[in-house]
Amino acid sequence: MSFRLSFAPSTDLADEKLGENSENLIEIRALKYSRGHRAIFDGLNLTIRRGEITALMGPSGTGKTTLLRLITRQLIPEEGVIYVDGVDISTLNQSGLYEMRKRFGMLFQNGALLTDLSVFENVAFPLREHTKLSNRLIRHIVLTKLHAVGLRGAADMLPAQLSGGMARRIALARAMVMDPEILIYDEPFVGLDPISLGVIVRLVRRLNDVLGITSIVVSHDVEEISAVADRSFLLSDGKVAASGSPDELRTANSELVRQFMHGMADGPVAFHYQAPGYEEQLLGRDIE
């Protein structure tokens, strides 16, 4: 699969009719969102294609997790529209929104397991809430999903007894238990040991291909995400700074892309937060 690497993705989208291209599952146009006085997104345009694994990357604080929350309407944008499968999600009432969310599975950054339920019950939770399946069938489905993430043996444990990596794998089992059409992963690779990491990376790819779903992955792990993503978006300053296949991003000429993809300290994105001069501060001249 190859894509044209683009550094100005917002201009050629203006005339496109939203929600009518069946290849596009999620379409975001002119999105604006602020937190306090700080603009997180300022006219963001982005399209996620059906059946692909899309990576959202960018320096810390660029709003990747916020974008996921906007796509799933956990947050409401100040301006702009978000279409999911041809539907403007801002027009949905609560029951419509919940019907839409049944098509999503989301893996939260910290797992977000329900702490008063066992691992088994956490994974079974959506099934018990939304279906009338027998206990036997629920058990079968849950054990299958737990087996897929390698934690069938932890079914009786409580979330407090799990390591961070285990909790995230359980959360992944829960996210896919309803066989969603869209799987959203927020930092799925953080805290995993190399073996689990390899398994999860392959699982993300396999789930996408075998089940024909669409995946959105927020990740800082350039190597891992490059191995599975069909297309990547690099977010910076509230907009899409670049998009294309991981290979295209890696060989791009843009300084920002190069800095991010190769993990360089110097570049358009400052490593140090704004501060007075180092020497001046150490010598106390800034408080004189």
Binding site: Y98, R101, Q109, A112, L114, T115, P126, E129
Partner: peptide, 22 residues
């Protein structure tokens, strides 16, 4: 409060389960 701080209520919302009701 801790359920909110650890995204458990958001996770319920994402599973189409109303946390107020549940």
């Amino acid at each position: 409060g801790l359920m909110k701080a650890t995204d458990q209520l958001s996770a319920m919302e994402m599973m189409a389960v109303n946390p107020v009701r549940r």
